[in-house]
Design a protein around this nucleic acid. Sequence first.
RNA 1: GUCCCCAUCGUCUAGUGGCCUAGGACACCGGCCUUUCACGCCGGUAACCGGGGUUCGACUCCCCGUGGGGACGCCA
Length: 480
Amino acid sequence: MARDDVRVRFAPSPTGYLHVGGLRTALFNFLFARKTGGTFILRIEDTDQKRSVTGAVEKLMSTLRTIGIKDDEGPDVGGPCGPYIQSERKDIYRRHVDRLLDAGVAYHCFCTEERLERLREAQRRKKLPTMYDGACRDLPADEVRRRLEAGEPSVIRLRFPREGRTVFDDVVRRKVAVDNELVDDQVLIKTDGFPTYHLANVVDDHLMGVTHVIRGEEWLSSVPKHIYLYRAFGWELPVFVHLPLLLNPDRSKLSKRQGDVAVERYLERGYLPEALLNFIALLGWHPADDRELFSLEELCREFSLDRINKAGAVFDVDKLNWMNGWYIRNLDLETVADRTRPYFEAAGIDVSDRETFVKVVAVARDYVSCLEEMVDRGRMFYEDICFSDEQRELVREEVSRSIYTRWIGEMEAKPAWTREDTENFIKQSMKELGLKGKNFYFPLRLALFGNTHGPDIPSLIDILGPRETVSRFRRALEQV
RNA sequence: GUCCCCAUCGUCUAGUGGCCUAGGACACCGGCCUUUCACGCCGGUAACCGGGGUUCGACUCCCCGUGGGGACGCCA
C-alpha cells in the first residue's frame, strides 16, 4: 500500500467553524500523506449557497494553520489542480454532467420540491423506502427540450440502475454490498446550476488525482452512487477509507447540541494544538504499542490505515482535559508562558515582568487543564487579596497575627531576602511561636495567597518578593 | 419504516483460535510523597451484548437474535 504517489484531501464545507470531526478527518488524511510521502490537498466544498458564510474559508484555513496541519495544495498555497474552491469550478461540473447526459447516465428532472416532499411523505406512510419515483426518468427527448427551452426549472439526476448489486472494498470495513434498487436517483446538478456533493466530489477527486478517499462513515451509504459515476466517466476508483464516527456521550453523532464541537472554541480556551491533535488521533486509531503521548511528528511516523477502528468513538472531554493538562505541564516552560500571556492580558493583568510571570506560570500550571484556567490560578499574585468571611476569621486570630508580626519584623530587618532565608525562617519562626503543620502554614498562605491551599510558601515569597510579602502581611493585620 | 455499518471495563482502546487469571490510558477509589492542595509515584474496583454452531480449544471464525449508530435532502 505504500505508494509514493498518494494523494489525499480534506474537503470541508465552510460553515463558519471547524468541527472536531472534521479535524479528525483532516488529521488522518494529513498523517497518511506524511507517512507515505504523499500529497495533502485542501479543497473547499462550497456548492451550497445557502450555507455559505462570509469569511468562513479564511477562518477555516487559519484554524488549520494554527493547529499545525499544513496543506500541500489548496486555495492558499495553490497547486496544479486548481482552483481548489468548488464554487470556482462550476463550468467543470457542467462540462462533465453533459457527458453523463449524452451517455444517458443522467437525465433532466422537472419535479418540484413540493411534489418530492409529498412523495416522500406518502412513501413513509406506506413504510416504503423513501426515494425518487422516476417520474422524469423516461421523459421523451422532445418534451425535455421543450420544457428546458420554456425555462422551466429543473435539476439533473443520476440514472442509477435498478437491478444488480454494488459491492465495494473499504479499508476499514472490508467488503460492503448494497442492492442497486435501494440506491436513489441522486440529484447531480441543482436548480441553481451548482453541483451536489456527489457529483463535485467525484469529479474533483478524479481531476485532482486523489488516490485515497478518507472521510467520515456518514458517507458510506452513498459510495455506490460515487462508484457508478466513476465507472460512467471511465475513471479508476480511489481506495475508500470510511472513518468511524465521533460520538456524543449518549453515542449519537457528535453534534453542537451536546457540547463544544468547534475547534476554535477549544483553541480559545487554551487547549493546545499538540494536545488536541494527540487526543483526536487516538479517536478511532491506535498505535501498535501502548503509548499514547505523541507529537505530530511521531504520529506521522506511527500512523497506518490498518490500525483504524470500526466502531464509533465517544469524544471524552475528561480525557482531553487530562491530556491538555499533561502538555501544559510538560511543554517547555517559556513556551507555555508565551502562550499563557494573552489570557492574562485579556483579563487586564500586567505581566510585563517576564521573570515573575514565568515563575507564576511554573506554579500555576500544576493546577489547570487548559490555559484559560491559568488566570484564576495566577491572578492573586497580581491583585489584592479579598478574604471571605471565613478566611477573615482565621486571619484575625491571635496566632495568625503573631505570625504576621514576627515575619514583618524579620523581613524588614534584612536588606536582602532569599529563598533560603524563607526556608530557614519557616523553621525558626515555627519553633519560636510553638506552631506546627496547618496551624502555621494556613494563616501564612492565606495572607500571601488568599487561600489555605496552594503552592508552597518559599515559592509564594519568591514570586511576590520581600516588599510585596511584607505589605500583604500588613494588609492581613489590618483586617477587622 | 427501508438499507448500510457497528458491538471488549463508565469512556478511549489492546487483543487477529491456545501467550487472557482479558493488557494500557482517562475517570473513580486507596496509599505514598508533601506544611496544604495540586502535580508525581504506587496499588485497586471495573468489560469480552445474548443464543446457537465450527473446533481438542473461542474475546477472537460462522449464523440468528438483541442493542446502538448512520444514510434515506435540489446539505455537505
